[in-house]
């Protein structure tokens, strides 16, 4: 019994090493995925972020068509980086709605004028309230939402060229 006990520290250390090896092998991943995938869009109604473009509410996200919901802001650099890809998606016929986080109309208008405007509607989320209701943890993020208003897929970070097929597949799957 006592002899066995003397080996216990080594055994515990081996366990610890196991965890550490796992930590080293696991890809560095600081993404906190939303737990809302597979659930209906939370109820919300956001005012228009820009004059002349409609705002966004949960009813508009359940109109029978799958769509991309982009969470972005004019003050976010990666959002500018993904703008061309969003334009390309729009040209492929994808409906893109957006939620602008903590943004001012002037800044937003300048951003869209400079980088392009792929959005059908933009809701203004001044205090990230709706962003949090979606379980989104930053900008930019995109959600694929099916025609019944169910959240199907989440993409964290800017959508790059190589992400497009996955996004399109998710949109297809949401049909």
């Amino acid at each position: 019994m006592r002899k066995g006990l003397l080996w216990a520290p080594l055994a515990l250390f081996a366990l610890l090493v196991g965890f550490i090896v796992f930590g080293l092998v696991r890809p560095a991943d600081h993404v906190i995925p939303s737990k809302m995938i597979g659930q209906p869009v939370p109820g919300f109604a956001l005012p228009a972020a820009l004059p002349g473009k409609p705002g966004l509410d949960s009813a508009a996200l359940a109109d029978g068509k799958p769509r991309l919901l982009n969470v972005f802001a004019s003050w976010c650099l990666p959002c500018a980086a993904e703008a061309p890809v969003l334009m390309a998606l729009k040209d492929k016929g994808v409906t893109i709605d957006a939620i602008a986080i903590r943004d001012r109309p002037d800044d937003l208008a300048a951003f869209l004028a400079r980088w392009g405007d792929p959005f059908a509607r933009i809701g203004a989320d001044h205090d990230s309230r709706v962003q949090m209701a979606f379980g989104s943890s930053g900008v930019p993020e995109s959600f694929v939402i099916d025609g019944r208003g169910i959240i199907r897929h989440q993409h964290v970070g800017p959508i790059r060229e190589e992400d497009v097929p996955a996004i399109l597949a998710a949109l297809d799957g949401a049909r």
């Binding site: 002899k3 003397l6 080996w7 520290p9 080594l10 250390f13 090493v17 550490i20 080293l24």
Partner: peptide, 28 residues
């Protein structure tokens, strides 16, 4: 970078593991 991580981990296993094994052998 992971290479450095693995290097230090190898050292840890060597030193701590070695000392604990020596402990288990000699403590009786």
């Amino acid at each position: 970078d992971p290479r450095r991580g693995s290097f230090i981990l190898a050292l840890l296993i060597l030193y701590i593991g070695g000392a604990l094994a020596l402990f288990a052998l000699r403590a009786p």
